[in-house]
Design a protein around this nucleic acid. Structure first.
Length: 726
DNA sequence: AGTAAGACTTGGAACAATTTTA
DNA sequence: TAAAATTGTTCCAAGTCTTACT
């Protein structure tokens, strides 16, 4: 501590530090789980009411509603105004009325949708809706082959030819998420089909016929037999406990030891089934595909306000055994079957309400337009709520996503100030402020997650920044020629290991020593801090700021910097893409997005190398040929041999290019072995950076984003120009 | 202030579809 | 043209953060 001049560390008010450091342990509570009832596997018929019919009536209605929506932006009747002050400011800058964006000067041009006349817009929408009823899109010919097959039915609604540009429209400014919502409810998991009688279960070597309820749960286990986790103690214990609950009393008294259960015939049966599925004829496969398409058309879309939108997960999760990730205390527990009676439907009052399957009832139908979900139910493992929501391509998700990046860009404008502030706070005489400042430094520098407290025993033991424990870091005064190195080693989200050795500022180092003084390994590092305190502080530094904004900001700014550094316009397209992937990778490394190396990794690298070698040889051949052609041309001096030289030259060039491409591919793949790019691409990188980069360097957007991604980022693709700057 | 519920984003793996290779 | 490799999609768990409550 000698080097810390400004304050004497011992003066720090550390209060009852030691006492609360076990707070995360103190509140163990066993959550009551709702009782389960999986025995009622009822046959269900899908209710089939005419699509076009209910649309007609509703269309008019929600067109009117949309007008209301537009009016809302003036928002004078907002009763929640005071409470949501901050939000309102944010959203106002959003909706093209930037005038009162006084305070931080954070208003951003990109956030303002271009204004278009409302009547005009309505007309357009109307036209589109009509078209969509009866004609196929003509221009969009690039359509997927798969769908053409299913065109038989007249009902199938076609995509509007012109995609709706929601980003050019006004947004809701209060908590309202929609004015009109209509959908058909969820698709339930298919009912349990009992095993054929020749597939037997044995207990202690003896055949035993199980009751349907017990049999179903047994099949869940049988299907997982190849997985390592069925050998884990916790898994087996949890499974057996829950399985017994499904048994008849007779079964319960007989089946007392899981080790004596023989599921192998079941397991074989399911393997055979999946083989059979693979071996199906083309026709059979097509039939299944068509049926899936039909279900998608019927249940996969909803009407929200004026528009038909894709639903993300319209199927209810089927029953099965909970696996969880990492060392989860609940692994193996039975995830119960969800029935209509468990389901809460959310839709607008004046819509056609979804009908429960015949003979059943919904738990509840509500009309809450302050939320975005269509369907919810309570899951029995953690007692948490699951939702059916819209696809990322939908307006409601897209707006939120856009907003997220705008928030990150606002942080960009004041991050220097905030950094200066927390560095200053490292010297504070208050312990809680120092802790807050060091934690924030980690969140900023290392892109750590906030780290909410978790209930012990309910989940795997993982941590984020605020929940770090003393045992998760080791301090090295000096290491590998660097001073003040902190070695992190902990399990983060999804039990992914975070391991990193980071040189830090001396003052941070000293602070960490102080925080760790007199603590046990399992004590909290930041005993005077939690996410709610931290976020409250961030809120004061910038309107709307929370811990996760730093991840978004640092990810996006890193991508932009890396792209600037790595790419030249002279490069060819494959080289540019390699650079893009490298920039993307830098972000993934920052965010610690790891994956298990693909099982086929080694082999696929080998294959590539073989290809490269072959290509090299081919190149050598081509060069030889070129040489001899040249010699030949020198002697003969006629047109024909000159031409031959030219074509050989071309060949060499072509092969060189191919070789280059292969080598680039190999590099890319090798570097990507343990890195997962998907998450950062989808959730952290402002898509407008990528779009602008593509436009600037003449890289087709398809090389960077696949179809789904282009749908999700349609707003960015449409609005970002080549000079966009994050 | 602390806690629980609720809503929504983020995450890697499993699975399915498509493309490439032998 | 099957099967291997690769890419795209779905699945559903696990986070973050806000809100309601006491």
């Amino acid at each position: 501590m000698s080097g810390d001049h400004s304050h004497n560390d011992s003066q720090i008010d550390s209060g009852s530090r030691h006492n609360d450091s076990h707070k995360h342990k103190d509140k163990y509570k066993d959550k009551e789980h709702k009782h389960k009832d999986h025995k009622k596997d009822k046959e269900r018929e899908k209710s089939k009411y005419s699509n076009s019919e209910h649309r007609d009536s509703s269309d008019k209605k929600h067109r009117d509603k949309d007008k209301e929506r537009l009016k809302l932006k003036d928002g004078s009747s907002d009763k929640q105004k005071d409470k949501h002050k901050e939000k309102k400011k944010e959203e106002r800058s959003f909706d093209g009325k930037p005038k009162k964006e006084k305070e931080n000067g954070f208003e951003s041009a990109e956030f303002k949708p271009k204004k278009i006349k409302t009547e005009e817009r309505e007309k357009k929408a109307k036209k589109r809706e009509q078209e969509e009823e009866d004609i196929k899109p003509k221009k969009k010919t690039k359509v997927k082959k798969g769908e053409a097959v299913t065109d038989g039915k007249k009902k199938a609604k076609k995509e509007p030819e012109e995609k709706w540009k929601w980003w050019e429209e006004e947004r809701y400014t209060d908590g309202v998420k929609w004015k009109f919502l209509e959908h058909k409810g969820p698709v339930f998991a298919p009912p349990y089909e009992p095993l054929p009688s020749n597939v037997k279960f044995y207990y202690d070597g003896k055949h035993m016929k199980l009751s349907p309820g017990a049999e179903e749960v047994a099949t869940f286990f049988a299907k997982m037999l190849d997985h390592e986790y069925t050998t884990k103690d916790v898994f087996r214990k949890n499974f057996f406990k829950d399985w017994r609950k499904e048994m008849t009393s007779e079964e319960k008294s007989k089946l007392t030891d899981l080790n004596k259960c023989d599921f192998s015939e079941m397991s074989e049966y399911f393997k055979a089934q999946s083989e059979a599925r693979k071996a199906m004829t083309k026709e059979e496969k097509l039939k299944i595909k068509a049926e899936n398409e039909r279900i998608l058309q019927e249940y996969g879309f909803c009407v929200m306000d004026n528009h038909k939108e894709r639903i993300a997960n319209f199927r209810i999760e089927p029953p099965g055994l909970f696996r969880g990730r990492g060392d989860h205390p609940k692994m193996g527990m039975l995830k119960r079957r969800i029935r209509p009676e468990d389901i809460i439907i959310n839709c607008s009052k004046d819509s056609n309400h979804p009908k429960p399957p015949p003979g059943t009832k919904w738990k509840e139908v509500r009309h809450d337009n302050k939320v975005t979900w269509l369907v919810s139910w309570t899951e029995n493992i953690q007692g948490s709520i699951k939702y059916i929501m819209l696809n990322p391509s939908s307006r409601i998700k897209g707006e939120k996503d856009w907003q997220k990046y705008e928030m990150a860009r606002r942080l960009k404008k004041c991050v220097d100030r905030i950094r200066a502030q927390y560095r200053e706070d490292w010297k504070s005489k208050e312990m809680r402020i120092r802790q807050r400042a060091v934690a924030l430094y980690f969140i900023d520098k290392l892109a750590l997650r906030a780290g909410n407290e978790k209930e012990e025993g309910e989940t795997a033991d993982t941590v984020g920044c605020c929940s770090l424990r003393v045992e998760h870091l080791t301090l090295h005064q000096e290491m590998d020629g660097q001073e003040y190195v902190v070695e992190f080693d902990f399990l983060g989200k999804d039990s992914i290991r975070y391991y990193n050795k980071v040189p830090v500022e001396k003052r941070v180092f000293k602070n960490l020593q102080l925080f760790m003084e007199d603590k046990e390994p399992e004590d909290d590092l930041f005993d005077r801090l939690n996410t709610s305190i931290l976020n409250k502080h961030l809120q004061e530094l910038m309107d709307g700021l929370t811990a996760k904004v730093f991840r978004t900001y640092n990810a996006s700014i890193t991508l932009q910097q890396q792209l600037n550094e790595l790419t030249t316009s002279e490069d060819n397209v494959p080289a540019k893409i390699l650079s893009y992937n490298r920039a993307n990778r830098a972000v993934a490394v920052l965010c610690n997005h790891q994956r298990a190396p693909p099982k086929t990794f080694e082999k696929s690298m080998q294959n590539l190398q073989t290809k490269i070698d072959a290509k090299k040889e081919q190149l050598a051949d081509a060069k030889r040929e070129l040489k001899s052609a040249k010699a030949d041309a020198k002697v003969r001096r006629d047109e024909k041999s000159k031409k031959a030289v030219e074509s050989k030259k071309k060949a060499v060039q072509r092969i060189e290019e191919q070789l280059m491409k292969l080598e680039v591919q190999a590099t890319d793949r090798e570097e990507n072995k343990q890195i997962a790019l998907g998450t950062s691409k989808l959730n952290y990188l402002d898509p407008r950076i990528s779009v602008a980069w593509c436009k600037k360097l003449g890289v087709p957007i398809e090389k960077i984003y696949n179809k789904t991604q282009r749908e999700k980022f349609a707003w960015a693709i449409d609005m970002a120009e080549k000079d966009y700057e994050f």
